[in-house]
């Protein structure tokens, strides 16, 4: 499209692979803080189920209680202990987006490398498909899929992966295009290396940092997107104690016991912030400018 005149990516925009130690990454404030937050949350999610006082779906005859010594965060409309549900409900909040991003990354890396390196007809077709796909808002596409196939974790993960793949492909294609004319790629071609070798041994290591930034950014978006879908009742289904589902269910108790809604909501927010900080620090660490250029 037109504004593409503004988004031309050059080799200088592609993050350079660096030899610097990872300690340097943690020294960036966002990086250290983000990693610390993420580790804390992972700890909570992993040991949570073992330290939870009650089972997450145990119904009691004491519904809608405020925080007390027995129920630290109170109970929900079915009398379930909210703290226990929070401690049990983190895994799917992290794993579903991770799965969606991994799926999308695999497809997008292959297609992006091929179309960026080969150019020509392959590239024209890929670009055309990407442009059409980007013209359809993500939310609409996913909602149409859910209306057609029904909600649930598997459908949402697949839909999000399909919706995100074109965005990732675009970034990888641009980065590949910027690297492809470099001397070492030409040398590999002159040596008669195979296509696979050139793509994965010559180009991939050089766009590795861009890939890493892209993974971190997409993971942030996917966490927010899938949590929102669960909140809308389209993703993970009740009686799961997924934090998004908990927010949706306890929303009705907002006026009576705000804590029960606030805690799972804030945990999702903190998770997204942690990953977002890491993505931001990665961008700085590698000096990546491609995402800024492509306005993603």
């Amino acid at each position: 499209m037109t504004a593409d005149v503004l988004n031309t990516v050059t080799a200088a925009d592609v993050a350079a692979p660096r030899q610097r130690r990872w300690r340097g990454f943690l020294a960036i404030p966002q990086g250290g803080f983000g990693v610390a937050l993420l580790l804390l949350l992972l700890l909570l999610v992993v040991i949570g189920p073992f330290i939870a006082p009650d089972s997450p779906n145990e119904i009691s005859d004491q519904p809608i209680l405020g925080p007390s010594a027995q129920h630290w965060l109170g109970t929900d409309a079915y009398g379930r202990d909210i703290l226990s549900r929070v401690l049990h409900g983190g895994a799917s909040v992290i794993l579903l987006p991770l799965l969606a991003v991994s799926l999308a990354m695999v497809v997008a890396t292959l297609v992006g490398l091929l179309s960026g390196y080969l150019g020509g007809k392959v590239d024209s077709v890929v670009t055309w498909v990407i442009n059409i796909a980007l013209a359809i808002p993500s939310y609409l596409a996913v909602l149409v899929v859910v209306a057609a196939f029904g909600g649930g974790g598997a459908v949402v993960v697949t839909a999000v992966a399909v919706v995100y793949a074109p965005y990732i492909t675009r970034v990888i294609r641009s980065a590949t295009q910027a690297i492809a004319p470099r001397e070492f790629v030409l040398a590999a071609r002159a040596r008669g290396e195979s296509l696979g070798w050139i793509l994965f041994r010559e180009i991939t290591p050089n766009i590795g940092p861009t890939l890493l930034v892209e993974i971190a950014l997409r993971f942030t978006y996917a966490i927010m997107f899938i949590a929102s879908l669960s909140f809308l009742g389209l993703g993970v289904q009740p009686p799961s104690s997924n934090w998004g589902v908990m927010v949706a269910q306890n929303r009705a108790l907002l006026l009576v016991s705000p804590v029960g809604v606030l805690v799972p909501a804030l945990l999702i927010g903190v998770l997204a912030i942690a990953v977002n900080l890491i993505a931001d620090a990665l961008t700085q660490f590698f000096g990546d400018r491609i995402h800024e250029r492509l306005m993603v």
């Binding site: 942030t220 927010m224 909140f231 998004g244 907002l254 909501a265 999702i268 927010g269 990953v275 900080l277």
Partner: peptide, 9 residues
Amino acid sequence: AFPEFVLGL
């Protein structure tokens, strides 16, 4: 970094 439903809440 906050999803809209968290900000809204």
